[in-house]
Nucleic acid binder design. Structure first.
Lengths: 340, 340
DNA sequence: CCTGGAAACGTAACCGATAACGATTGCAGT
DNA sequence: ACTGCAATCGTTATCGGTTACGTTTCCAGG
């Protein structure tokens, strides 16, 4: 790093080129009304001084910035995967991306974080935003696309087919012979959490297995929230033979607790997650889970936001993406399974 | 999303509370010189209008913003892992994080990207920046910490012990009986690429194995750059029995090419990578690689940057972190190995 | 030579917030 | 009542860049 006392501003360029800042601005933005000779002078001054326009100053004055924003409450694997998809969709689109993350709420929820971040950014800095797993409805001047929206929201959003995914997951467990299947729910306000629970209930209902409320733990998608819940479930006199967790992060914590309490997986306990984050493939045993292509979620959200900003979106404003079951080593028939 | 016509600014709050913007600013920033009654009025107006200060306007005026920046040329797994560490280090530190990514150069290098991004941000928006795998030296008004710096740089930086890591990797292959070991190098300007090649050469030299220049391919750390190089190596009449790639991304491409050309791994070909990105654990077979804890790199870089900004850093400005070899299924003795 | 109009360029207001500074008020001490 | 000092609060310049508007320059046509 080379220390530099002061940054090069537009007025430095103007002085060097012997013109006004207005003219420099016109040259930088390729506006009409500058002679070829002046353009050349200004360009050369810019080159020499190494001038680069300030994102901040520009966005304060301008309405369009060609920058899209993304706000997320933390950076776990889920968000990282989403991000890859977003970047891919924005590749060579002319839109840059700003990700804003607040240090205060890392790993813990704090009501309304997304609204605070968004307001700070969308004042002028960004033309639109993607919000990952919002807390509530969002007021904004610029377009917002939610990934995994709140329940009942009619705003633009992208989400997985959580109902079908969860149903398939529980059907998988039922098919293996499990009858006492625990469930660890996600944050209730999110549509995804609700649908995954619906899928759990629907699959059980179809199979004629009654839902035991004692086997349902109320988490919030944060991995840490699952630890005490798993402990409670597994320390019951009649623990479930399988647990379906509404996210991989929580499912991995279930595996941890199971190991800690001496349950062998999948011998004593089958575990299924939801998301298919990279870590799920590399645990011992691998986690059976529902793949929801977070990459695809990010990709589609960015594609939609881009078009919403330019005003060319004419497809439905709510996208649902398919899921698929990924069977790995964490599921097997229960020991006590009555052979068919 | 709820559409809102205009954002709430400080003057709106001032008008509503019947004071000047200066007073509102003082209340917002908790400055001295406002009566309790006025504070209450302003607070209530802020609450009612849902005011949130504009990050842009604030940073334009202020020198300190309590926002740190991170610029990276793309978002592969490497960057995502680094990011997790950065977020952890910034947790509850009072510093927010802005990640800036330019869409134009996704996946492809473009000289000087980091300088352009940095200038745009550091004008006023950020108090300091982390640059991941920079291209060259960086001019900046504010502190900059490089993760995986350029060769010969004396600027603040965090990097893995690439020399030791690479040496260990190649020693592992030599220990298995390999003698013809190919190498796919990284982008030459980076210190890491250079050290990893040094490690490769050093290990061979120690074992008395001559370096065959024909077995060295010149990549640039981008996974795609490895594909043609691997093809050339493996289509030789006398292909190497093992390949050491300077990054996991490139190593995974080697696996792809090997499969495509009918090489079985590790039967016909052993492959070793460097980085230990999450994907490396979940391929078939798993990739043997050198773990450099990208999480730790990010964590340390953020910790250093934080202290540099506040001026309390008194440790060495160049941090080197240890590496460790992770042996998985992609390495085995060569078929033709002379048994010891 | 004069005029008209377009092209080229500068001036200044403005975006939202901050901070230096000045102005006003209240109150204690004389 | 008067002074002096704090506490409180408004005015205004400022950050860097953009743009509406006004002014100057230049050239073609009469």
């Amino acid at each position: 790093m080379i220390e530099v006392n002061a940054p090069v501003t537009m007025s430095d360029v103007a002085r060097a080129a012997g013109v006004s800042t207005a003219t420099v601005s016109r040259v930088v933005n390729g506006h009409y009304g500058v002679s070829a000779r002046t353009v050349a002078q200004v360009r050369s001054a810019i080159e020499q001084l190494g001038y680069e326009s300030s994102l901040v100053a520009t966005s304060l004055r301008r309405s369009r910035t060609n920058v899209l924003g993304l706000v997320a409450h933390s950076f776990q694997s889920y968000t990282a995967e989403v991000l890859k998809g977003v970047m891919k969709a924005l590749s060579r689109s002319g839109f840059d991306l700003i990700i804003y993350a607040n240090s205060d709420l890392y790993g813990s929820y704090s009501e309304g974080w997304e609204q605070r971040h968004l307001t700070r950014l969308s004042g002028t800095l960004t033309d639109g935003c993607i919000v990952v797993t919002p807390w509530g409805d969002i007021r904004s001047r610029t377009p917002v696309v939610a990934i995994d929206p709140v329940r009942g929201s009619t705003a633009p959003s992208v989400m997985a087919d959580n109902l079908a995914g969860a149903t398939t997951a529980v059907e998988h467990l039922l098919g293996l012979g499990h009858r006492r299947i625990g469930f660890i729910a996600g944050r209730d306000s999110l549509a995804s959490a609700w649908s995954r629970e619906e899928g759990y209930r629907a699959a059980l209902a179809t199979a004629g297995v009654p839902v035991d409320p004692a086997l349902i733990g109320r988490g919030d998608f944060n991995p840490e929230s699952a630890t005490p819940l798993a402990r409670v479930l597994l320390q019951r006199p009649d623990p479930p033979s399988a647990i379906f967790a509404a996210s991989d992060g929580m499912a991995l914590k279930v595996l941890e607790v199971a190991r800690e309490l001496g349950f062998s997986v999948p011998g004593d306990l089958s575990v299924v997650g939801f998301d298919n984050i990279p870590e799920s493939a590399s645990t011992q045993p691998g986690l059976t889970t529902v793949d929801q292509s977070m990459y695809q979620l990010g990709y589609e959200a960015a594609r939609m936001l881009k078009s919403l900003v330019t005003g060319e979106w004419d497809e439905p404003r709510q996208i649902v993406l398919p899921t698929s079951l990924v069977v790995r080593g964490s599921t097997a028939p229960p020991k006590s399974a009555a052979r068919p």
